[in-house]
Write a protein that binds this DNA or RNA. Structure first.
Length: 576
DNA sequence: GCCGTTTTCGGCCCGACTGTTTTCAGTCG
């Protein structure tokens, strides 16, 4: 049974093999673009194949549609098999070495018969590589470095890891006397769930000074590139960081450019061309003019192009440009809209902070309500609460509320109930009835079939006492794929049942995926941002959940963290 | 390979840096 993942892999391999075969770069690009387009989980490939409507998707034409149909019905693509016949399988792997692309892979294959990373490594060591035309000693060294790097790191980092690396660099650059402005750009600023590298954009009249400071900063392991305005370093953490310096008057353009995404930029530049303008990282230039239209902020750039301001999180070429054109972008929720947090663990199960700790934190942060949700009784590994412990915790919450209520902080009595293998919740009805709210989550039996897992979760979200569906897929970013479930079907069921869908804000999870947040909203779901906190510091993960919500076009009215405690409690109560 | 109120052919976003070259190709973002 073909899956989306398998299809994308096949198309990606097509792109690489076509490149190796020397195909037109735009043809290669068309396949890469198709991979990106079809990676959108809200596109129902099976349905479009059945209806013969794949070409309705912008960017999918007759040629690629045929390949998709063939793969979906037979599990293979004839042309892909033919291409595979032309090159040994190891050649594709060579193109994954940083700095080593299809052209070089083809050259070493044609000239030296090399078709594996191991063989390439050997040739780089024994001097054969540097004898090739267009190659030399430096290239051989780069190859060895690239191979070592590829082996050491999978190449992507979680967003929290990336931000932790970026923060001290940002602070150091901000403190530099020659720096007027500096921001982290790229996937960090767009709040993607992972990042390949860290991009900084800096406004300075003295780029050489700033770049020198950048490449000699603590934590820099090696300098991989340094020109007049751009420097790249490898950090000890293994991440690459790039700094680009521009004139202060160019800063907004550079920031927009390096924030991306690449696909969003392509669309903006095309839009500029359509209007007789040329857009690059230095400015927006009327035909034949050397002088850019002025922009002190990105808002100005968007306005010059006839667009409403597009927040960085939305710049993925997923409809934001069309919406900005019609001034129909949503008013995204912000940190200031958030008055409540839920899905918090205490020492009663596997958390660190006490009820008192949570109340104090909320008071300090101006948060009005905190929803406690320890693990339920089946979660023995996490110290799940037996019914008598649940009742004791309720009394403790009453006591904390008596103290903190007058100061404007209220704790809610919740639970993170395991979804049992048959889809039932983890307590008898009389215990369930006593909770203010219930987060239902899967913590066991990840390997059920897609049908079984989906049915299990569908039953749980339909339960009248389930307030929130916790981390829908159980994925751990860069570590473990989510369990097999039909997410759209579950989201539609949540919308029907009025079950709120959690955006788990833990940066290891960020589950619901941002690409599905929009589908959830369009289906009519409400959302909650759950820090899933086990320590006080875990509450700061709110920022990542907020990023996911904003990336999914969420507005404050649809995210229950922005509701008063009374409104949230009433919603949970009526649902019962 | 995709696309089209100029177009069914001929375009397709743009620039920095590196390494190998005496003027440019490859890679990357």
């Amino acid at each position: 049974m073909p899956t989306r993942t398998h299809l994308l892999k096949a198309l990606e391999e097509m792109a690489t093999l076509l490149e190796l075969a020397g195909a037109n770069t735009f043809k290669v690009g068309a396949y890469s673009k198709a991979v990106r387009i079809l990676g959108d989980e809200t596109i129902d490939i099976g349905a479009l194949v059945a209806a013969g409507k794949l070409t309705d998707i912008d960017g999918i034409g007759k040629g690629i549609a045929e390949k998709v149909v063939e793969f979906w019905t037979t599990g293979q693509i004839t042309e892909l098999d033919e291409l595979r016949g032309q090159f040994p399988p190891g050649l594709v792997e060579l193109t994954e070495i940083p700095g080593f692309g299809a052209k070089k892979a083809r050259a070493v294959f044609d000239e030296l018969g090399i078709a594996s990373v191991a063989a390439l490594e050997e040739a780089a060591r024994d001097g054969r590589l540097e004898k090739l035309k267009g190659f030399a000693k430096k290239t051989a060294e780069k190859v060895l470095e690239g191979i070592a790097l590829m082996r050491k790191h999978s190449g992507r980092f979680r967003i929290d890891v990336a931000w932790s690396a970026a923060q001290p660099i940002l602070e150091a650059l901000r403190a530099h006397p020659a720096v007027e402005r500096v921001e982290a750009a790229g996937s960090l600023r767009r709040w993607r769930e992972t990042a390949k590298d860290i991009d900084f954009v800096c406004a300075t009249p003295r780029p050489a000074d700033v770049m020198e400071a950048f490449v000699t900063m603590p934590g820099v392991e090696s300098v991989t590139g340094k020109g007049d305005t751009k420097a790249s370093v490898r950090l000890e953490s293994g991440m690459q960081a790039d700094l680009r310096c521009v004139e202060p008057s160019q800063f907004a353009y550079a920031l927009a450019h390096f924030t991306g995404s690449k696909e969003h930029n392509v669309r903006l530049r095309q839009r500029a061309l359509d209007r007789g303008l040329k857009l690059n990282e230095y400015g927006l230039f009327p035909d034949g003019s050397e002088e850019s239209l002025p922009a002190t902020a990105e808002e100005d750039i968007h306005r010059h192009l006839g667009l409403a301001f597009i927040a960085p999180e939305l710049r993925e070429d997923m409809g934001e440009i069309e919406a900005a054109e019609k001034d129909a972008l949503p008013t995204l929720l912000t940190r200031n809209d958030i008055v409540g947090l839920m899905h918090l663990h205490t020492p009663a199960s596997d958390g660190q902070p006490s009820l008192q700790d949570y109340a104090e934190w909320a008071h300090r942060q101006g948060i009005a309500w905190m929803g406690i949700a320890d693990h339920s009784q089946s979660a023995a590994y996490a110290g799940g609460l037996k019914p008598d412990v649940v009742r004791r915790q309720w009394s403790e919450i009453d006591a904390v509320n008596a103290e903190w209520g007058p100061k404007g902080v209220r704790l809610l009595k919740g639970i993170e109930s395991d979804i049992l293998v048959d889809g039932a919740l983890d307590y008898d009805d009389d215990v369930l009835a006593g909770f203010d709210f219930i987060v239902a989550s899967v913590h066991s039996r990840f390997n059920l079939s897609e049908d079984e897992q989906t049915a299990r979760i569908l039953r749980a979200v339909a339960h009248p006492r389930t307030t929130i569906l916790g981390h829908m897929t159980g994925r751990l970013l860069l570590k473990r794929d989510g369990y097999a479930v039909r997410q759209k079907e579950i989201l539609e069921a949540c919308a029907r049942a009025g079950t709120i869908v959690e955006i788990n804000a833990n940066p290891h999870r960020l589950d619901l995926d941002w690409r599905l947040v929009r589908f959830a909203l369009e289906s009519g779901c409400l959302l909650s941002i759950g820090p899933d906190a086990h320590e006080i510091s875990g509450l700061d993960d709110l920022r990542y959940g907020l990023g996911v919500a904003r990336k999914g076009w969420a507005t404050a009215d649809r995210v229950v963290n922005c509701w008063s405690a009374e409104k949230f409690l009433e919603y949970a109560r009526v649902k019962k």
